[in-house]
Design a protein around this nucleic acid. Structure first.
Length: 616
RNA sequence: GCUUCGAUAGCUCAGCCUGGUAGAGCGUUACCUUGGUAAGGUAAAGGUCGCGGGUCCAAUUCCCGCUCGAAGCUCCA
């Protein structure tokens, strides 16, 4: 059954003619209702009295929340492409009406073509849609949603020495960032009108920008941004493959009514992009979970094959966040996220895997250029899991080497019993999750993923959900915010060398040195150094200044001296020094810094004079 | 979604309060300049002042509505 519920200032309808032969016998007359909740109802195949009962209970609940007592049930076939027979639909509607006599209830006639006029109120709960189906999964969901509201969490700070203190008793004086994370919910107001530093930087460095012609939160990436993203994607993928991940690719859209998916989707009804195509209702994925689960379900699995680690760099995952929540590269509606699921035969194996993935995530997050002081960890688990796995949790915190925020649940109410994240705290005191991992004990069953165990019995695996870096865009956000912090505190802002769109710039003093620069650039390029040449007819001072503002690590002015001497004069941006060194020394120095990181060629014309200006 | 703010040249913005159809810097183009480690000079081109309505002799400016955007809040598996 599908419901669309509108809280109206006024609703007026007029039956015009019978649409079907089994239409209700009535005198067609215009009815007008004030301050009424109109619920459009489509009864679907498979619905029965229990569904009608469930539906009317949910409707009552929401009316109570809104504080309205007048209800109009309005038969409305257009909400579904899988309608029940008219006779069943009519009887269930009457059933719902009879179950709501404690309200001021009325019902629009069934089987008639009607015209209507309405004015919907402007409050957040005025418009809701619901899908109600028979069966256990949906019971579980509504239970889950209910228990989510009632959930009891206890908050602690767990220190590396193993002491766990209630969070309001903890002394945060040495851990201001952790305090921000811990108190994030109650965070104070910040100065208005301040654009987050990374938003300015992403434009200034021609990395990314808003695309007004798309939906908000869908960014455009300029050549620099695409290069940075692609390097990060390669880096993370390489690390996951080294850990044992197996890369796959899954569709970005799914049938909303697929039985295994429906219950999963309905839990977050406001958060998806919906697409209608050829009568099908499709949703865009918000992670790779279901794609990989559906794939794993079709694999023939033995306990010998586990742990099985499926991995995808999702370009894209979509989440239709509320428009006001979107910020630059921090929170998007379309983003690229590594998503790696490990299917494990039992909790013992899951815990072993959990440790590996924790180390993987730490390595990745440090590899991309963030260090221990840039993020704070939060770990959440059920009380039961904690009791049985104290040592594991304490060991994990020891690895971080500083206190972490703990949320402990009395009971399990999500599909996971443990979840941790690394949170980046930015210049405006905002916390955003980067790496994360979860131990999922439900979806193996929900998706019918089975393996055969040592005793030849089918079992559902425990599934770990890991994003070793978090969203790639969010990594760029964190790196830019970190650079902004450096600038604020008097250090030179920069991106890690391996991620810099241009690593080295040659500035010929005069056009006659262009040819020499070209040769030099060939040498440096073949040594995997992204090199370009600023051949514009501008003063030396100006070209150096612009190279500095583009955060180019190495600047080489090429003139008579260089052409005739063995050594080069290399301006190293971070130190601000000009060193005279040989080309071999320069190459080996840069190679050392980029060791273990992927390389991509220059994603621009080599000559600055040939490039379009990106004015943002 | 709520609140607030905004929309003027390719970009960043001034002008609006006090109405008389626009200005700067950067960028672009042309010319001059051939410069040794953070901005060389001159000139030119470039605008239906977001859209619609109202007031007025006259609206970029005042008023109303709309659209789009941003920030904050709420939220964030």
């Amino acid at each position: 059954m599908r419901l669309l519920q509108l809280h109206c200032n006024n609703f007026e309808y007029t039956p015009t003619k019978k649409e079907i032969s089994s239409a209700e016998e009535i005198e067609p007359e215009t009815k007008s209702l004030d301050n009424v909740v109109v619920t459009f109802v489509a009864v679907e195949k498979g619905d029965d009295k229990s569904v009608a009962r469930k539906a009317i209970n949910e409707i009552k609940e929401s009316l109570q929340k809104i504080g309205c007592k007048k209800l109009l049930l309005y038969p409305y076939a257009h909400l579904s492409s899988n309608l029940a027979s008219p006779s069943l639909a009519f009887s269930l509607l009457k059933e719902m009406e009879s179950l709501a006599t404690d309200l001021d209830v009325s019902r629009a006639p069934f089987g008639w073509t009607k015209s209507y006029k309405l004015e919907v109120k402007g409050h957040p709960l005025a418009e809701t849609s619901k899908s109600i189906t028979k069966g256990t999964t949906d019971d579980e969901i509504s239970e889950a949603v209910k228990s989510e509201e009632k959930i009891k969490s206890y908050w602690y700070i767990l220190s590396p020495d193993g002491t766990m203190q209630e969070f309001d008793k903890f002394n945060f004086s040495k851990h201001p960032q952790l305090e921000i994370l811990a108190k994030y919910e109650s965070a104070k107001k910040r100065s208005v009108d301040e654009t987050p530093p990374h938003v300015k930087l992403m434009k200034k460095l021609a990395i990314a920008d808003y695309e007004p012609a798309s939906d908000s939160g869908n960014m455009r990436f300029y050549p620099n941004g695409r290069l940075i993203k692609s390097l990060l994607e390669k880096y993370v993928t390489d690390k996951v493959l080294a850990y044992g991940g197996i890369e796959v690719e899954t569709p970005i859209m799914y049938d909303s009514h697929h039985p295994s998916l429906e219950s999963y989707f309905n839990r977050f009804p406001a958060r998806q992009y919906n697409i209608h195509s050829e009568g099908k209702s499709l949703i865009l994925r918000f992670a790779a979970c279901f794609g990989q689960f559906l794939m794993a379900k079709d694999f023939q699995l033995s306990y010998r094959n586990l742990p099985l680690r499926l991995y995808e760099m999702t370009r894209y995952s979509f989440r239709r966040e509320q428009s006001g929540e979107l910020v630059g590269l921090r929170r998007l509606r379309a983003f690229t996220m590594p998503d790696c699921h490990a299917f494990c035969k039992d909790m013992k194996q899951a815990i072993e895997e959990f440790k590996k993935r924790f180390d993987l995530s730490s390595e990745v997050i440090h590899g991309v250029g963030l260090d221990n002081s840039d993020y704070e960890m939060a770990i959440r688990f059920t009380e039961d899991f904690y009791k049985e796995n104290k040592q594991l949790i304490q060991d994990t915190v020891k690895k971080i080497g500083k206190p972490v925020l703990v949320e402990m649940w009395k009971e399990k109410f999500f599909y996971y019993i443990l979840k941790w994240e690394f949170n980046y705290i930015d210049n405006l005191g905002k916390a955003s999750a980067l790496s994360t991992d979860q131990i999922d004990v439900e979806n193996g069953k929900r998706y019918n993923i089975e393996f055969v165990d040592e005793e030849n019995k089918p079992k559902n695996p425990i599934i770990l959900h890991n994003s070793p870096s978090g969203a790639i865009e969010r990594v760029i956000y964190a790196l830019l915010e970190k650079a902004a912090k450096d600038a604020k505190e008097g250090r030179k802002p920069h991106l890690p060398l391996w991620l810099s769109p241009i690593q080295l710039r040659l500035i010929p003093l005069q056009p006659e040195f262009n040819e020499y620069c070209e040769k030099l650039a060939n040498t440096l390029t073949s040594a995997e150094i992204r090199t370009d040449i600023d051949d514009r007819n501008e003063s030396i001072g100006k070209r150096i200044r612009e190279a500095e503002t583009e955060w180019i690590h190495y600047i080489l002015v090429i003139g008579e001296k260089e052409v005739n001497a063995k050594n080069l004069n290399v301006r190293e941006r971070i130190s601000g020094k000009v060193n005279e060194i040989s080309i071999d020394e320069l190459i080996s120095d840069i190679k050392k810094q980029n060791h273990g990181k992927p390389f991509s060629k220059l994603n621009q014309s080599r000559y600055v004079s040939k490039r379009p200006q990106i004015m943002v």
